[in-house]
Design a binder for these strands. Structure first.
Lengths: 160, 160
DNA sequence: TGATAGCTGTTACTTTATAACATATCAACC
DNA sequence: GGTTGATATGTTATAAAGTAACAGCTATCA
C-alpha cells in the first residue's frame, strides 16, 4: 500500500478499478450504490484531488443529477461512512479513497503550495499516541492524521 | 508532558500559569499581547474546552471588547500562529494550548460523547508516517492529529 | 513631522453545512 | 396484490464558519 497521489500513474485504470472495487463491496454488503452516489465517487476519482462539496455539486448540476447541497452532502456522507472517500478536515474537502477494501487508518500528505493530496496510512494504536490513550483509558475509534508540507515537486522547485 | 483535559486539576492556577507563560513569551519575543488577544486566550483557558469562534465572540460582545467576527478570528489567528492556542479541525473549534513554551506537535483526544478534548503530543517524524514522507520526498511542516473516541468517564458509563 | 507598521472596528459577503419536510422507490410481509 | 417500513432523493430555507476590504487608531522612528 504505497502512498498514492504524487507519482504519475495509469489514471483511467485507477478510476475503473476504484469503481469496480466499490461495486463489488456494495453488492457483498447489501449497500445501495445509487446513481448519485456512484457519480460523486466517479467525479472524485476522475478529478483525483481533494474537492469541496460545492465543486462536486457544480458537476452534478451540469448533468442534472441533483442541484442542491443536501444531495451532494448525503452522497458524500455515504461514501465517507463506508470508507469509499475521506474528508480532509484541514481543507474542508473530500477525496476518493485510494485503498478501498483494505482496512486502514488513512493519513494524508497535503502540499500547501499546489494542494496535491497523497493518501497513505498510519497506525495510531501503536507509538506514543496509542500508549498515551491506553494509559489514560481513552478508547480510540477514529483518527484524523493530516500532514502539511511541500510535495516532492514543489520542494524541488524551491517553493517557500 | 502529560495529557491535559480529562483529569481534575487546580483550574485557577492553570489559567494563571497559562497567561503568565504567554505574557513572558510575548515580552521575550516582542509580540503585542493586546487586550483583545489576552482576553480571548483567557476565555479559552477559563472555559477549558474547545470553543467555536462565535462562542468566544459572544463573550467579547457581552463585555464590549469587539463585536464582529474578524475581531475574534484575528485574535485567534495570532494565538494559533504563535502556538498559544490550537485549532481542532474536526470540531471547527479552538482550545488553549496546554503546553505553552514547549516545542511540540500537538495531538488531541476528542470524546465524541461529551466533547471533552485532551491535548497530548506525538512525534510524526518517526514511525511509519515519517518514513513514508521521507521515502517520498515530502517535507513535513505541520501535522494535524485528532483522535476521536470515548473518554474514560464516558466509556466507564457505558456510552455507545 | 510625516511615514511606516501593526492592531482594531465595521460592513458586507463568501463558503460550508444542515434542518425539515415532501416525494419516490423498493423489498418484505400478510 | 396491497400495505407497510425502510431507505433514498428533491427542495426550500437557514445556520454556522470564515474572509475581503477599507477606514481609523497608535506607536515608533527616521
Amino acid at each position: 500500500m504505497d502512498p498514492i497521489g504524487f507519482e504519475h500513474h495509469d489514471h483511467k485504470s485507477c478510476i475503473r478499478t476504484g469503481l469496480t472495487a466499490v461495486d463489488t463491496y456494495c453488492v457483498d454488503h447489501a449497500l445501495q450504490f445509487t446513481p448519485v452516489r456512484r457519480r460523486v465517487l466517479e467525479i472524485l476519482l476522475q478529478q483525483h484531488r481533494a474537492m469541496g462539496a460545492y465543486d462536486i455539486l457544480d458537476f452534478l448540476r451540469a448533468e442534472e443529477l441533483g442541484s442542491q447541497p443536501p444531495v451532494v452532502y448525503r452522497a458524500l456522507d455515504f461514501l465517507v461512512r463506508h470508507g469509499f472517500a475521506h474528508k480532509i478536515e484541514r481543507l474542508n474537502a473530500f477525496i476518493a479513497c485510494a485503498h478501498v477494501g483494505h482496512d486502514h487508518t488513512p493519513a494524508f500528505l497535503i502540499c500547501r503550495s499546489c494542494d496535491a493530496v497523497a493518501e497513505t496510512h498510519t497506525d495510531p494504536a501503536h507509538g506514543i499516541l496509542g500508549q498515551t490513550a491506553a494509559d489514560n483509558g481513552f478508547v480510540i475509534e477514529q483518527t484524523v492524521v493530516e500532514v502539511l508540507g511541500l510535495c516532492p515537486s514543489c520542494h524541488s522547485e524551491g517553493k517557500e
